[in-house]
Write a protein that binds this DNA or RNA. Structure first.
Lengths: 251, 251
DNA sequence: ACCTGAACACCGTTCAAGT
DNA sequence: ACCTGAACACCGTTCAAGT
């Protein structure tokens, strides 16, 4: 068990590597990121250690440090892998609200495909997020083009994203987290609503319903706001500046 | 530095305690939770270890295990401390939408007062959340009383909560996380919107604006949905069951 | 009942030695 | 340039010994 590589662990058998630079490349930053994502999916966030990652790559833990800055950097690599799968293409063809809805669902799916990463990525601040920046640029450009005031777009996007992230965290929480079994007398309204929901949704995950309701509501609210703005008297509701919304100037 | 208690560490001087049961109570579950919250505020989530917690309580780490199940249980205690400060009183007196708004702001403040706890509590599933259940019961009861269909309330509440939690995570992220400095050419729309936002909000934290916009939008959307429901033809938009909304029956 | 002290099985990270 | 192997300074948790 404390022998680092063995025939018994489902790994390919091979002779142990000796000290010194290997003759063929065994590690790269992206190989590490991919192995990390696989390890996360298999063993969860708790089982995700540098040792286990090294083991999966048939290497000693210290070898990883030739390619990444540390564990946080590995996680940053995983983030890139996942955010590459978020689809912003709808912003090129659809109206802003429909595009945002497709974006939100794609965002959710990208996370949901790898549940253990959600808490990890939610928690760890983004570093060197070049690709994430590109994604934002696409969304911002489309919103401004549609007529959203430039000083309000970012906050609007962040608001939607916050909802998506919060929903992803909710989706990953154990389903029976709030099962009121045995407490019906203490929390009668809750228990009754819990039973009513269970009866209504059947086998679909509860988190899906909350996501649909919330996304629909937030987009509805944003559409109303957009209507106010484009109706003409577009004094910002937020921010002390009170700057009038500018006409779209960029892109 | 490796002497566990010393005169040099800002702690009260006192003779070392000997082995054996202490004559006066030195630890309780709630003393541990309070010390944990203090430690979190002072040293952040990374500095929050059982050793440091024990040190703050002038005790050996193993002593903690007489009162809590482990680190996760300590965090559960911290959660109770914080969620006790979330104010649901508005649901007793205000219309559901205004109450929900006050609840959301109170929720946000409770977290924002202790930033390092946000990631910790967002990530860790709730265990034995008796008090949290009580909070939900209050909210559910008020919503049903107002006329929300019972099978939809829970998802609606969870949606709002997801937004609040996501926003809290956003608020705790480093402010310059997406500063496009030096990348203006690569992401021109984003850079322009970033500058416009900065000019508009002045010194207020960007996360505050996103929270205000998002909460307003989601409540706007929920009001619209509520209007549809109470207008009569209240077939649920969600869930395959297609059950007609029931008249409020409980509390 | 509830503390200390010692021990266990881990962590992430650094760095010299080796090719 | 890039691996191994050894070492460092931690972790969280368990448990016997002691009062």
């Amino acid at each position: 068990m404390n022998v680092p590589q063995g025939k018994s662990n489902g790994e390919i058998d091979r002779p142990a590597r000796r000290v010194g630079r290997p003759t063929t490349t065994v590690l790269t930053r992206s190989l590490i990121a991919e192995a990390a994502l696989r390890l996360l999916d298999e063993s969860g966030a708790d089982g995700f250690t540098m040792s286990r990652l090294a083991q999966a790559l048939r290497v000693r833990p210290s070898a990883l440090y030739n390619h990444v800055d540390g564990k946080e950097d590995v996680i940053a690599g995983v983030r890139e892998l996942i955010s590459d799968r978020i689809d912003v293409s709808a912003f090129a063809t659809e109206p802003w609200d429909k595009a945002m809805q497709q974006w939100a669902y794609s965002y959710r799916v990208a996370f949901a495909t790898h549940p253990p990463t959600i808490a990890l990525l939610a928690t760890l601040p983004v570093r060197g997020a070049r690709r994430t920046l590109r994604m934002y640029d696409t969304v911002v450009a489309a919103m401004v083009r549609a007529g959203w005031p430039e000083e309000e777009v970012l906050s609007t996007i962040v608001a939607v994203e916050s909802f998506i992230l919060g929903s992803a965290l909710d989706a990953v929480a154990p389903g029976d987290m709030f099962d009121p079994a045995g407490e019906e007398a203490r929390v009668p309204s809750f228990a009754s609503a819990y039973a009513a929901r269970a009866a209504a949704i059947g086998a679909t995950p509860p988190a899906d319903g909350a996501f649909a309701i919330g996304l629909h509501a937030i987009l509805d609210g944003l559409r109303a706001r957009f209507g106010e703005i484009t109706a003409g008297h577009s004094e910002g509701r937020f921010g002390p500046g009170g700057k009038a919304a500018k006409a779209p100037t960029s892109a």
